[in-house]
């Protein structure tokens, strides 16, 4: 098992009352799964992904990642686990505007203090794999949305994460681009990467191995 959430509650106070963003949510995810979180807008998909990423906290419940009790960990350790294991893919790509494709992909390696020669090899590999060698010196604004998301994925993958979190990765793309990305996810999954994606699209969800439906911060059993 890769991670386990037990009775997670997350709330915000509003006018003295608790507004639940996650409400008694329990979920187990095995290594090698490709899970799709579905549910209407505002149902808590992003919130859940953020909690899983450990970037966001929760108020109650237990969270085990790779059998470490996340709810007891210091924020420094959490950041450490996140940096080692998790790649995040954003709906809005969030590429660094001032860096080229190559440099965007390279950035996480810089922060891990990986040697220059090794970095070169890894980035070259990734460019190759996503067929964007020819675009490596372009800046994000010179790319289409689909291409930008490819770079986003390459950047998430470069640290060889165990887990990929993708928040509506195709939300800004047309259906052909969307299918490409999903095909890629499927292939990655087959290579052994665990993927959790939030999506509105039935067809996207179809690429995955399991679907979890959210409603008002809880898993909708229907």
């Amino acid at each position: 098992m890769l991670l386990e959430l037990n009775h997670i509650y997350k709330w915000v106070k509003s006018g003295g009352r608790r507004v639940f963003l996650l409400n008694d949510l329990s979920l187990k995810i095995d290594e090698g799964e490709f899970l799709s979180l579905m549910g209407p807008s505002g149902s808590g998909k992003s919130t859940l992904l953020n909690v899983i990423s450990m970037l966001d906290a929760f108020e109650e419940g237990e969270y085990y990642f790779d059998s470490e009790a996340v709810h007891d960990l210091s924020s420094k350790r959490k950041t450490g686990i996140f940096n080692e294991n998790i790649g995040f893919i954003f709906q809005a790509y969030h590429l660094l505007d001032d860096l080229t494709v190559y440099e965007n992909i390279e950035t996480p390696l810089l922060y891990k203090k990986i040697k220059s020669s090794e970095r070169k090899a890894l980035v070259a590999d990734m460019l190759d794999r996503f067929n964007i060698v020819g675009k490596k010196d372009l800046f994000p604004h010179q790319l289409s949305g689909g291409q930008q998301q490819l770079v986003g994925i390459a950047r998430a993958l470069i640290i060889k994460p165990k887990l990929i979190l993708a928040d509506e990765p195709t939300g800004n793309l047309n259906s052909a681009q969307s299918d490409d990305i999903m095909g890629l996810f499927k292939k990655l999954n087959q290579e052994g990467v665990t993927i959790i994606q939030a999506t509105h699209s039935e067809s996207n969800a179809g690429y995955g191995t399991r679907i979890v439906n959210l409603l008002d911060g809880s898993i909708n059993k229907n």
């Binding site: 940096n83 969030h94 590429l95 660094l96 950035t107 922060y111 950047r155 640290i159």
Partner: peptide
Amino acid sequence: AKEVGIRKALGSKQNQ
């Protein structure tokens, strides 16, 4: 700020 957020999500530490 956006850049800071992204970089941190990519593994940057504050002192970096």
